[in-house]
Design a binder for these strands. Structure first.
Lengths: 337, 337
DNA sequence: TTGTATGCGTTATCAC
DNA sequence: GTGATAACGCATACAA
């Protein structure tokens, strides 16, 4: 049978409370007793029951991650980042897949909190913007941190990258290389980052005095197929763009595929850039010029905010990084006539 | 405040035990009382505490997945498959990253079981073959199911694909196309599937009367870089292979990259095939001929085995699928002289 | 500094 | 069928 605190206290000849004190590193325990307790613990290979601790105590040392994202890489980065911080803190992580658009979301979140007694919740995109979930958490008074929220920044603690600035930077880079017709592929409409990226693209054009041409902007769904479709449409234009900027790399891979299929040379005839959301970009040929999102770091920071938070909402911005490669080299003679 | 069973019993005018009976769908409750209890539950929006249930009851309705794999896609498939089954069963999933080679693995597993009281554990590759973990589970008498174990099949319930047969099938396909010099890139030595795949490759050669040439077999680590390195070595041979079969698709992507870099046309000058472990293959150009592993289904089946298991080890084999594409078209005139 | 009594929210035992 | 009452294994408040 498993050993309990009672067994330990009997073996050490002290009260259960003293054992509890030693276990939790409280003060006011004599060295002598502490030593005896520690020996007994080691001897019996005692493991405190997390369940009993949760029931009796105030904290559960458990947090939950609620996610709904179809990019395995994104989820993995998020989980890894949070897990790193949890390890340092001795906290367990409950992974909770969900459907950001589901009418049951509020109920699911409520059940999660009530049933498991998690100390807090981390929301990743796109659940981070699901008001049903936020309302449920607010109502239950559960602490939560949002990763890359698109709206309502002041509502809770959150961490994010500056998507608009990142898109602006990349677009400006393309412009500086001499590009004048830059295609843009929108991200999934459910993700607020999509809007921000599009806005950054537009802002950069505007600042450079270039006109925003809706025909160069195509919708997308963050997946390979929509990237292909968008590229086909853009490259079929009478005057096609000299560069295509995709809102993530799955779609950028679609662009590359279409280019290969059509015999279009990269970067000589077309420059391709994208957000490196799924880390696919580094595996493509030619290697893509990308905006690298610090997903893992964002997740780590989110967990930190959750653990260290004192109630007042805090926002943390983490820097993005432009990874420049040959795929966006200057066009060979495609400046405006 | 959260409602408790006591509140419900008071509201319904019955004992707590009766409420418990209704909640757990036990027999011997009159329709009248059952109805009153259900109304009270709905009225109070009562959520039973999972924690208290675990402490008092026998089962926790929680299982754990122990994994250590650096392929986000693999992990995602595994988690998704298990989660699907858990949803049907109303069971929560605790995700436990680990290090299959860590000397602390046994301790970590022991703590997991003792602290969380999970009803069972699912092990994915490569932890599925970590004897330290298996011993710890055996010692604690915790039920567990292994996904794609490479050794000791009889030790526990398990699910798997026939890796040797899959590699054999693919190699045979290449041979049938006319290939006589087929390069092979080994998988990560920690994964037992690597050996099986290599064996299947060799068996197919043998059956076809082709000699096994060690110079056509290169080591690999299941990552992009090792695929590149292996391809470089193979293509530098005086008489290079006409086809390269990589043990996963990350490495196959490396092969494609090297081919592009060297101006080698695919499939005219080189055929490329691989195991589609990370689902990357479908996004490459040209699309790769692959063995598709039913990862999600394996995970789902593993969870089923865990829930339905009655103690006696059961093994379930799930079929693989060959996805044939132009990347392994017949060689244009490269048959042996 | 140490120990005692009580509670956490549910299930299990055993009466009625 | 139904209901008291005792566990479950720990933390908490309060004494000593």
């Amino acid at each position: 049978m498993r050993a309990t605190i009672k067994d330990v206290s009997a073996a050490a000849g002290v009260s259960t409370k003293t054992v509890s004190r030693v276990l939790n590193g409280e003060r006011y325990v004599s060295e002598a007793l502490r030593l005896r307790v520690e020996m007994a613990v080691a001897q019996l290979d005692f493991q405190p029951s997390a369940v009993a601790r949760i029931l009796a105590g105030k904290r559960s040392n458990q947090i939950a991650l609620i996610y709904d994202n179809h990019s395995p890489h994104y989820i993995h980065q998020i989980q890894t980042g949070i897990w790193e911080r949890c390890l340092e803190q001795g906290v367990r992580l409950l992974a909770q897949p969900s459907d950001a658009g589901s009418p049951n979301l509020a109920r699911e979140v409520g059940e999660l909190i009530d049933q498991t007694r998690v100390d807090g919740v981390i929301l990743s995109s796109p659940v981070t913007d699901a008001s049903a979930a936020l309302e449920a958490l607010d109502k239950l008074g559960a602490p939560y941190v949002r990763i890359s929220p698109g709206t309502d920044h002041g509502r809770s603690s959150s961490v994010s990258m500056d998507d608009a600035k990142a898109a602006d930077d990349m677009t400006s880079h393309l412009i500086a290389l001499g590009h004048r017709r830059i295609g843009f592929i929108f991200g999934h409409p459910n993700h607020t980052a999509s809007d921000l990226r599009h806005f950054g693209y537009r802002r950069a054009l505007d600042r450079a005095g270039l006109s925003y041409e809706p025909k160069y902007v195509r919708p997308g769904l963050f997946d390979f197929a929509s990237g292909e479709a968008a590229a086909d449409t853009l490259l079929d234009l009478p005057v096609p763009p000299t560069a295509i900027f995709a809102s993530n790399d799955d779609m950028a891979a679609g662009v590359l595929t279409v280019a290969h299929r059509r015999g279009i040379a990269i970067p000589q005839d077309l420059s391709v850039a994208g957000f490196d959301d799924t880390a696919l970009a580094s595996q493509l040929w030619p290697p893509l010029t990308t905006v690298r999102q610090p997903t893992r770091q964002l997740a780590y920071a989110a967990a930190s905010l959750l653990f260290d938070g004192d109630g007042v909402p805090v926002h943390r911005r983490l820097p993005h990084e432009l990874v420049l490669r040959s795929s966006t080299a200057a066009p060979r003679s495609r400046s405006e006539a």
